[in-house]
Design a protein around this nucleic acid. Structure first.
Lengths: 223, 223
DNA sequence: CATTCGTGACAAACACTGTTCGTTCGCGTG
DNA sequence: CACGCGAACGAACAGTGTTTGTCACGAATG
């Protein structure tokens, strides 16, 4: 017997591996150490096992990331679409999606690289489509609009991540950078530096959503 | 003298390294082999040198990607904002940005991970802001709108990449996937599968841009 | 109770990755 | 002609994802 080998009988009854346990461990590492720290070996170490063992429950790193993304999406609560409150419901749903992504920094970045065709993502799209149709939108426009909203949510979440884990440029420094540019080549950016960095993430996200809603309503019935 | 060592005098007058040469080689590899193939060693091999030599001209892989992104952004032509044609100018500029990104598959994915604070990106934002202001938009709304448009362009380009390098699901297969879902849990997605996958990348992108423009105009003067 | 069996964990190995750094060598300068 | 400076090199380090042969354990069998 190898000296370092521990018999299973010696171990304190380690719970068996499972996809759920792997994803849980990966999400814990993601939250505490960031996306780059989520490596097969790192997750395996957290589970007190070897990297190779994970491949039984997860098809490689991409599969793990997709499973994590799926898990996060599944936490978003859904409401039955109601034509009387579709406007508020839309804002609520998008805010929940946005919140779920920023609650797990780093996941948003993977949402783009991997086409979200998971169960949970589809349920989200179903609900989103239902709310838009409840709002009286033309089906074709509603269908395309789901993609636009997905883009806004993802983009906002990624920007949030960058701004938090990045250089801690909490607006003030960024405004300095904008205002400090050469005035002759960047007259507008320097002039409107205040407006460019105005608002927190929530305000900017709500603005984007409102603009798209207004645009959908304004153009309804058009081409 | 080591047997494998070739004197510089023997070599066919290799042109000296430079940031431009490094970025050129990296872009060539990106176009022919994809983003994952753009590694320091791979780029160095293309330049017939060692990976370490690149660090004189580029600050690591992230710096290289940023330089590549900058180079691509710099290819976008800019027009002097004209209030009489701001609508067309906006479409043209965004289409050019979109085109530049899809012309270099993989670059779009990095645009999100790295905050585009490069010279070329700022000039683009300056021009975009100018066109929006020429359209008579409120400065605060115009400033925030630049971010929304950036999100749309990036998202559309990424989706383009995924759809091309992905599973070659050219709409028909994707529609099959949508329509084949359980009708009881996905009544809307199955019912509107046609609308969800309708249109090519260009049509969908133009729809998104039009919606945002309509929304900006509809809401101008509001909060 | 003894033995076999198969499942699933394990660790090592492979082929990579980004990055650092000591050494060396060619070329322009004095 | 000799020098030195800066750029290029290649080895080394610490990682990465993934595959695979081996082996110990628990349960089922005789």
């Amino acid at each position: 017997m190898s000296p370092a080998r521990r018999s299973t009988r010696d171990r304190p009854a380690k719970p068996p591996l499972s996809e759920e346990a792997v994803v849980d461990a990966a999400l814990a590492i993601l939250k505490s150490e960031g996306l780059d720290a989520v490596s097969m070996r790192r997750v395996a170490t957290a589970l007190d096992t070897g990297a190779g063992s994970l491949y039984v429950y997860v098809s490689g790193r991409d599969g793990l990331l997709q499973a994590m993304q799926d898990r996060v999406m599944a936490t978003v609560e859904l409401d039955q679409p109601d034509p009387a409150h579709w406007h508020a419901q839309l804002h609520t749903l998008l805010a929940r999606m946005h919140g779920a992504l920023v609650a797990h920094p780093g996941i948003a970045a993977t949402t783009l690289a991997i086409a979200p065709r998971s169960e949970a993502a589809l349920l989200l799209q179903e609900n989103l489509l239902g709310i838009l149709l409840a709002g009286g939108l033309d089906p074709q426009r509603a269908a395309w609009a789901t993609d636009v909203f997905a883009a806004l949510v993802t983009h906002a979440a990624v920007e949030d991540d960058v701004r938090r884990t990045g250089h801690q440029e909490l607006g003030a420094e960024l405004q300095q950078a904008f205002a400090g540019l050469p005035t002759d080549r960047f007259p507008l950016i320097t002039a409107y530096a205040t407006q460019l960095v105005a608002g927190d993430a929530g305000q900017r996200f709500r603005f984007a959503v409102d603009v798209v809603i207004d645009g959908l309503l304004a153009g309804n019935g058009k081409a």
